[in-house]
Design a protein around this nucleic acid. Structure first.
Lengths: 339, 339
DNA sequence: CTGAAAGCGCTTACAG
DNA sequence: CTGAAAGCGCTTACAG
């Protein structure tokens, strides 16, 4: 019960509990050096007063804000939002809040901009989304500035304390294995943009699966994309117009896979009867396109939650998980090839 | 140039400029009571030192953080992210940062949760997205707590200082006019969820256009949806299975419109030859579905930017715009009805 | 137009 | 295990 609109402060608690501010501070910060009696007494007063420590004051004294930052270069709206939800899951009922900061990875001043941002906001820690999570100089910058960081990515690019990763390579292998098991032999790949680690991992997974089964991947069975719808449309067009048409396409993400659906339709090819398609991400469009798309889903929200836990409670057990298995989501864009 | 890793403080500036801290503070806060000479002198030192006021200290002294909050109940990932981009446009190169806070409008404790959040973070102001922006008690709460707020919505629910609104009703009227001009007479509606102002506005626009042209809207030409894909699929199914099938459908958002595409396909109806469809939002799926969808686009990012400006610079001219016209985006899901 | 003092609500060495 | 003093870097009355 705050008196006359004023929130109770540490002084109010100290006075009512008959201890010093410092002791109250120790209770707040869970210091070990504290008698059980004192702790109980102070906690009782805190509860009775409804006292909540003022984060602004703590931030000033600690030279550190209770803010978690989300650094991203808009990989994909759905992903960014799910990550946000995951972070919120982790910081619910804590004093932390989530600050978002889109950046432009093509800007020559990106690192300086981020440095200024970290300097000014004195974030407690940041979560970095791909593809900028692949930038080692950025991780280094965080280290220098004493700002915690966790990177999200498609492979372990950093040690477990600083990384949450999906297993893209294995999952793409599994997806291609699935196609092969159904009888597909001519399977084509639409790659993601050069320089993206996820694109690399997915391609490697694709090639590994093909090689393991002794299947050839001629140049005409590979198209370069950039993760955007249009590139999937163009890339699939190219693949489908090749002399020996593939019976299945793995597209490195769902947006490009959607483009492949359109390319097939333009050529009067039916999915999955004439062409099987598998995407990656399990974004909403995968479920809402016709026919519903088989794709690889990864636990974005859980990864966001785990990353936030690593930031705010590095010791915590639930913060120890760093690898997050993706899994194949089977829908209706895959069938055995026609004889 | 910070000496030995320490950032310069207001004291450093004061000392070097040969004035008091208070005077430096006046410069920072653009106080009018200041001689031109003093201001210039202090500003020179600030520039030379690369001094940036510490937001944590200001927050403590002012009892107010330089944080803008985004309160939303996940209407739609794309919209939320575009709003974030708009807010970032507005606060770029300022000391403000953006804090996101998803809420659950069905939670009985929502208002208390938000109160606690505002109390603790002492936000400078919040931007509230629909549908919770329609909650007057929430706006009232912000007022009580001395927290600035701006609501985003589909109609002017508040005065211009506290509102950015699109003109959904007019735009749906225009969209339906467009269908009628092409010769459609049996036009059906898939409504948004009850209790959503946007659903109400769009329905009213639909009905107004039909009435203006003397066209009947029998009950079988109206389906209830909830803005989700599945409800569009089911609703359109219902409409298309009615004895006299509509030649066109207006769905109150793109997700439901996508569902309508599927319902048509399931019935071997071609869009737009056998059925014209118009959606609302111009979300990515509208461009990526087949055929590309005609829909109503509204300037989400600009509205986010304007809302943020209202929050941080209420006097500013660019913060005065409150109405943001949506517009019809013509693609390929609309054609004249077959004779 | 400018400044000295007190205060925002915490934490950090330093003692004891 | 506990406390008195100083400090984090600003702003707010209050004078002058």
């Amino acid at each position: 019960m705050a008196k006359s609109g004023k929130n109770p402060t540490i002084n109010d608690v100290a006075r009512l509990a008959g201890v010093s501010k410092k002791t109250v501070s120790r209770v707040i910060n869970r210091s070990a050096l504290l008698s059980e009696d004192t702790r109980t007494k102070v906690e009782a007063v805190i509860g009775q007063l409804g006292y909540v420590p003022n984060p602004q004051a703590r931030a000033l004294a600690l030279r550190r804000n209770f803010l978690l930052g989300l650094l991203h270069d808009n990989p994909n709206a759905q992903t960014v939002l799910k990550v946000q939800e995951g972070v919120l899951d982790a910081i619910r009922d804590t004093e932390f809040a989530l600050v978002v900061r889109p950046v432009d990875r093509h800007s020559p001043t990106m690192l300086d901009d981020i440095r200024r941002f970290l300097e000014q906001q004195r974030l407690y820690g940041v979560l970095i989304l791909p593809p900028i999570s692949e930038n080692d100089a950025l991780a280094q910058l965080c280290l220098e500035m004493g700002c915690g960081y966790v990177r999200m990515g498609s492979a372990m690019l950093d040690d477990a304390d600083h990384m949450v990763a999906s297993n893209d390579r294995e999952m793409v292998e599994a997806a291609v294995d699935h196609l092969i098991a159904l009888g597909h032999r001519r399977i084509a790949l639409i790659e993601g943009p050069e320089g993206f680690r996820s694109a690399f991992e997915r391609r490697e997974g694709f090639l590994a699966a093909m090689q393991a089964h002794g299947l050839d991947v001629p140049p005409e069975a590979r198209a370069q994309g950039n993760y955007r719808f249009e590139s999937g449309l163009a890339g699939a067009g190219q693949l489908l117009d090749a002399p020996t048409r593939p019976t299945a396409i793995f597209a490195s993400n769902d947006e490009m896979a959607s483009g492949a659906f359109h390319a097939a339709r333009q050529r009067n090819l039916r999915v999955p009867d004439d062409l099987s398609i598998i995407g990656f991400d399990d974004s909403p469009i995968a479920a809402h396109i016709w026919p519903p798309m088989t794709t690889v889903g990864w636990p974005v929200r859980e990864m966001g939650r785990a990353a936030a836990l690593k930031l705010i409670a590095p010791g915590d057990k639930s913060a120890s998980q760093s690898r997050f298995p993706a899994q194949l989501v089977k829908r209706q864009s895959v069938a055995a090839p026609k004889a």
